[in-house]
């Protein structure tokens, strides 16, 4: 564990050092994704402000929830950049390079492919959370901060697991670069609005198959002292960590299968 942490720190150190060599790119990458997140939010804000809310959710609450999902996405973009762009790494033979080392792929890839531009959505997300909380303050209880920490980490794991499932296609020599993109894009558009706005079928889908509703929507109910207004009643409001673990079990399983298949198939 000690050397594991030391390794991740060394990766981070070398990644930042390398990124800082090209200050324009560094700033450009961060600003690009920061603006992306802010404008994505702005679209929602304009609409909700115009219509005065969605299904009883106020503007501030919606922005707060969207901000949380942006922080989670930012972490995916910086720490798990390698998995988002996995197709490239398979095609360019990076996988082989990782496999000739005595470490697992998931130990090496996050650090080795760390991308600072993920700080963009993280910063934007933090700003949106602060902005949302300023307009619609959540209940200030002692468990607010710990619960937020749990929610944010669960959301990261959920989105990571989904990304891993899509990325695993690359092990089968399948072209899927656009699929990871549309996964991310669909996630942000769906997360922009409260899940209760959607039909029962869509709600079921984003609770069970693509559990995006656990990234912010369900757990935020507790922060705003709301009862469940969704399809699944109140238990789901507490279940983000469980959903994350379940998603990861599936995602990791698919990923392992992909590696096995890659080793069995490989490229010339």
């Amino acid at each position: 564990m000690g050397t594991y942490l030391a390794l991740q720190m060394a990766y981070l150190h070398i990644g930042l050092k390398s990124a800082l060599q090209y200050r324009v790119n560094f700033v450009g990458g961060v600003l690009g994704l920061l603006t992306h997140s802010l404008f994505a939010a702005l679209g929602g804000i304009v609409l909700i402000d115009r219509f005065g809310g969605v299904e009883g959710w106020e503007l501030g609450q919606i922005v707060f929830m969207f901000g949380l999902t942006r922080i989670q996405t930012g972490v995916i973009y910086s720490v798990f950049r390698g998995i988002v762009g996995w197709e490239f790494y398979v095609q360019e033979g990076f996988v082989d390079r990782y496999l000739v080392r005595p470490r697992g792929l998931l130990t090496q890839v996050p650090g080795a492919e760390f991308d600072v531009s993920g700080f963009g959505p993280m910063i934007a997300g933090a700003g949106l959370v602060a902005f949302g909380a300023a307009i619609s303050p959540p209940n200030l209880t002692w468990w607010l901060v710990p619960w937020l920490a749990v929610v944010i980490s669960s959301g990261i794991v959920i989105q990571l697991s989904l990304t891993m499932i899509v990325a695993s296609f690359a092990f089968y020599n399948v072209q899927m670069g656009a699929a990871t993109n549309s996964l991310e894009r669909t996630a942000w558009q769906m997360n922009l609005f409260p899940a209760s706005a959607y039909s029962a079928g869509v709600q079921a889908l984003i609770t069970v198959a693509l559990p995006w509703a656990f990234m912010a929507f369900y757990p935020a109910h507790l922060l705003y002292g709301r009862d469940s207004d969704g399809l699944f009643g109140s238990p789901v409001l507490y279940l983000s960590p469980v959903a994350a673990m379940a998603a990861f079990a599936v995602g990791y399983g698919v990923w392992r299968r992909g590696i096995r298949k890659y080793q069995g198939m490989g490229g010339m």
Binding site: G53, V54, S182, T186, Y198
Partner: peptide, 29 residues
């Protein structure tokens, strides 16, 4: 790129559903 296309269709349909119900919800406000 069949996987790309099929996943884009699937996500596209999901977004279409999301948008349709979202606008209905907005119109209800």
């Amino acid at each position: 790129a069949r996987v790309d296309i099929l996943s884009n269709i699937a996500f596209g349909v999901l977004l279409a559903y999301g948008l349709a119900f979202l606008w209905q919800a907005l119109y209800r406000a």
